[in-house]
Design a protein around this nucleic acid. Structure first.
Length: 883
RNA sequence: GGGCGAUUAGCUCAGUUGGUUAGAGCGCUUGCUUGACAUGCAAGAGGUCACAGAUUCGAAUUCUGUAUCGCCCACCA
């Protein structure tokens, strides 16, 4: 047997096993191997990403599910990969260029993209490598990138299909424009942030009259693009104004006053300035009233030539100056503080400018219908279930998806235009000739697609779709999608839609939504707050297993996870505990063959049976909790079993046998220990893969598999040789030991202090069992001797207590504090009588006896009897004590 | 404006279909250099389960309302 070191050195061990697993191809699988498929596709992290706690949690969960499935013998693949993250990556590279004093136009499109690829080659695998430190058992042979050739093919294919079906179209609409990224964004990419802004009340002059009207706006600078002022047609105050003209200040443009139902007479002044090129509602009104659309800004949010004297100013600078000018002209009625939600770019946090712009859209309603159905009829389940509502709410109000981006890094839109005949078509190949007029004046659309337009194909594109192949056939649909709630709209919903559209089948049957990782004050972890805890630091400090186990331990289903450094001590301490238990076993195993884990079931002692019963419970509970995605309960069940049932009770029970028992007894006990330990290792493996693998080998078991990764997952308990009555007796024995320890503790007895315990068992059966168990009970109580007598009567005042097996007395020379004993027992008697009274009251209530289920009543009756007996005994003890 | 979640021990949180005395980790108190482990062992203190009603023989758990905190969605300029 290889000797285990005194202390566990996780760093070397973890590195070693990951390398070994990789070298042995343990993570890889393919359809040709047949069997029961189990597939998980990773939510591809951004190539720009570095591992944070959210990733750690997310991938940890996937790894646990994957490792369990693999041990269950399923044909398991966990497909990893990264996302090209269009805007984010382009931003990173542009920032690098800026340091060289360049902008992307200096390089040109082609050179710039080359540069991004270079960046990707150099830094793009950072996060994948970090996942390896976590122990993620991804099938790295299958690693994909959303800009891979294959995945790009999938993007082009679905674009053309949807275009030809009329589900992709080009439209001129108000979209969310980020003036910093200089691109359009989807509605989901605009994050609404509540801000304290201002509601500016501006005075507009009515043409030909002295009258001034007041309009309220939050964005006064858009006034330069106003093409009307609107009132509600039923608003009596302004009836006369309808049809009149307004003269706009500064530019002196004349615009009409129109009537539109959209206007809420209750809000502001009941008069709304209409800027069709900068507001979605105004845009709609503009269409209804055939108003001109005046865009007053450039791509970068600078006022353009339509802004007259403000041309060249930044939009916010313009707002400031314009207000000053209006104020000077007496055209500002008032400025109110106003709280409202303002859209911000989800990539760079710049204030979004709603802006009229020609963009490409996907018509979502037809795609949404089957996706709604799939969740409604239960083919896809959200865990926790409440996310159904979130999903449904979004799906039922779905709006068309703006998919074009004015950046360079991404999948270029496969639309071609003929400059001669204005023909427009979609094609997967680079077109040079117009199919309609044969002209060679053909150009491709300049825009690229939204990053999510490639990730929504992920569950099937990773297997080579549109190519038909066995893997795709075998592994699709995948099993569980594990993700955070923040990308339900971005990603989950869209994958469901694309899967049903393209594959005609759901992409996964379960969506497990885990919580957000927060700091111990409940704040989201972020770089700017400086409160993030780096998983790699935690691995360095506590080990990967510790990180993993602790994360799982504190992750209640779907609840947010609050972490601080100390939380990881749980996992580290548990790892140490397991390691030391193994060392203890190793110490005593010398000269014994522990390769053979079988034992004779007829020889099981009561404590053996008790341990195995607890093991059975742990197996059943772990499986049950895992099936229900209750990871914290699963880890707690294992933790509790290993630490308390196995170490605290069984190993302590085993000590006297190992030190003083016969070789036969030793051998039998070691077999039970090793059987239990090896089962526990397998149960723990998905949560602590490295330590368990190290010990699997360190303990030198007679493996059928040379890695614990493929050892059989414990599903069923051992049934034979366990007698429930005996298990119950051992529960009682533990209670007896506890009572004895309390007596020692109350008298602060040193271990060396000689003590004898006298036990008066409740029946002869227990008397015999206790007598047989004397050795282990004495060891647990550090007692010199134990006297067992069903008729035991204390000779004088003795510290005592009542256990499930009977009364326990502690014999100590001249140390008894009689008054304290009487007080203690009297207190306990009062408590027992209190409970007894409650139970009696319950049982005397005819409603309870008649209506409660029989077993509940039976429990109460039993409890009543037990309490009555205990009460009687305590009274007698007090009597004796006084006597 | 809608929707969702949270409120349980000093702290951070479990508590699945209502049913014995509401649990864990950390922290705290006391005693242990016990031949695996002080990253440990044993014992202990600490909770009117946010509040108010309702249902029920029985509520931390179900229902209604209130309060506080958090998240998501939403075109009131």
């Amino acid at each position: 047997m290889a000797e285990l070191s005194k202390t566990y050195e996780p760093k070397d061990v973890e590195e070693k096993w990951y390398q070994q697993w990789m070298a042995d191809g343990r993570f890889h699988n393919e359809s040709a191997n047949g069997g029961d498929p189990f597939c998980i596709v990773i939510p591809p992290p951004n190539v720009t990403g570095i591992l944070h706690m959210g990733h750690a949690l997310n991938n940890n969960i996937q790894d646990v599910l994957t490792r369990v499935a693999r041990m269950q013998g399923k044909n398991t693949v966990w497909v990893p990969g990264t996302d090209h993250a269009g805007i984010a990556t382009q931003n990173v590279v542009e920032r690098a260029l800026k340091k060289e004093g360049k902008v992307r136009d200096d390089l040109g499109r082609e050179k710039f993209i080359e540069r991004v690829w270079e960046w990707k080659e150099e830094y793009g695998s950072t996060i994948s490598n970090q996942l390896k430190k976590l122990g993620a058992s991804c099938d790295w042979d299958r690693e994909r990138f959303t800009m891979d050739e294959g995945l790009s093919e999938a993007v082009l294919e679905i674009f053309c299909r949807l275009y030809d079906k009329g589900l992709i179209y080009r439209g001129n609409r108000i979209i969310n424009w980020c003036p910093r990224c200089e691109t359009a964004l989807s509605d989901e990419e605009s994050e609404h942030v509540d801000v304290e802004g201002a509601l500016y009340h501006l005075r507009y002059a009515v043409k030909g009259k002295k009258q001034r009207i007041v309009v309220a706006t939050t964005r006064p600078e858009t006034m330069l693009g106003d093409t009307a002022v609107a009132v509600n047609p039923r608003d009596e105050r302004y009836k006369d104004l309808i049809g009149q003209m307004i003269v706009l200040p500064i530019t002196n443009r004349e615009i009409p006053i129109i009537a539109d139902d959209y206007v809420d007479p209750e809000f502001g002044t009941g008069l709304v300035k209409v800027t069709p090129a900068h507001d979605p509602n105004d845009f709609e009104m503009g269409l209804r009233h055939d108003l001109p659309q005046i865009n007053v800004m450039t791509d970068t949010g600078i006022m353009n030539e339509n802004a007259g004297p403000y041309e060249g100013l930044d939009r916010f600078e313009c707002r400031k100056q314009l207000m000053e000018d209006l104020k000077a002209g007496g055209l500002v009625e008032k400025v109110d503080v106003h709280h409202h939600a303002v859209g911000h770019c989800y990539r760079c946090d710049t204030v979004i400018e709603p802006r009229l712009s020609p963009q490409w859209f996907v018509k979502m309603k037809p795609l949404a219908r089957p996706a709604i159905e799939a969740v409604n009829d239960g083919r896809i389940k959200f865990v926790p279930e409440r996310w159904n509502n979130t999903y449904m709410n979004w799906m039922e109000n779905i709006r068309d998806w703006c998919i074009s981006r004015q950046i360079w890094w991404g999948h270029r839109i496969p639309i071609f235009y003929c400059d001669d005949c204005n023909h427009e078509w979609a094609a997967k190949t680079a077109e040079t000739t117009c199919p309609k007029c044969s002209s060679s004046k053909v150009r491709q659309d300049e825009d690229v697609l939204d990053t999510w337009f490639s990730s929504w194909l992920w569950p099937f594109s990773v297997f080579g779709w549109p190519e038909k192949n066995e893997d795709l056939n075998f592994y699709y649909p995948s099993k569980t999608l594990v993700t955070g709630n923040e990308i339900i709209f971005f990603w989950v919903a869209r994958m469901i839609m694309s899967g049903l559209e393209v594959m005609g089948d759901i992409p996964f049957d379960t969506v497990y939504i885990h919580g957000t990782v927060r700091d111990d004050q409940g704040r989201k972890m972020s770089k700017s707050l400086g409160n993030s805890i780096d998983p790699l630091d935690i691995i360095e400090k506590y080990s990967s297993d510790a990180l993993r186990f602790s994360l799982m331990m504190i992750t209640a289903t779907g609840q947010d996870v609050y972490i601080s450094d100390e939380k990881f001590e749980i996992g580290r301490n548990f790892g140490t505990k397991i390691w030391n238990a193994a060392r203890f076993m190793e110490m005593h195993s010398e000269g014994f063959d522990v390769k053979d884990l079988s034992f004779n079931e007829e020889d099981l002692t009561p404590d053996d049976q008790h341990l195995l019963a607890k093991l059975n419970e742990a197996i059943a509970n772990t499986n049950d909790h895992l099936q229900r995605y209750r990871f914290n309960d699963a880890t707690l069940a294992l933790y509790d079993f290993f630490w308390h049932s196995y170490c605290d009770w069984y190993l302590e029970y085993a000590k006297p046998i190992l030190y003083k028992g016969t070789p036969e007894q030793k051998k039998h006990t070691l077999q039970v220990m090793h059987f239990t330990f090896s089962t526990a290792l397998r149960l723990l493996h998905p949560f602590m893969p490295f330590l368990t693998e190290e010990l699997w080998h360190g303990m030198d078991y007679n493996h059928t598999e040379d890695t614990i990764m493929l050892a059989a997952w414990p599903e069923k308990a051992i049934a034979k040789g366990i007698d429930p009555a005996t298990v119950k007796y051992v529960d009682g024995k533990h209670d007896l030991i506890r009572v004895g320890r309390i007596l020692r503790a109350e008298y602060n007895l040193a271990n060396k202090q000689e003590t004898t315990f006298c036990v008066r068992p409740v029946n002869a059966g227990y008397a015999k069992q206790i007598d047989n168990d004397k050795e282990s009970i004495m060891a647990a109580l550090k007692a010199e001797a134990i006297e067992v007598d069903v008729n035991y009567a204390p000779k004088g005042a003795m510290p005592s207590g009542i256990s499930a097996l009977g009364a326990v007395y502690m014999s100590i020379e001249g140390l008894v504090d009689v008054d304290a004993e009487i007080e203690k027992l009297t207190k306990e008697l009062a408590a027992v009588n209190g409970h007894l009274a409650n139970v009696k009251k319950k049982l005397e209530n005819p409603h309870f006896v008649n209506k409660a289920p029989r077993d509940v009543v039976a429990v109460q009756e039993k409890r009543r009897d037990e309490l009555a007996e205990k009460s009687e005994k305590l009274a007698k003890m007090i009597e004796t004590m006084r006597g």
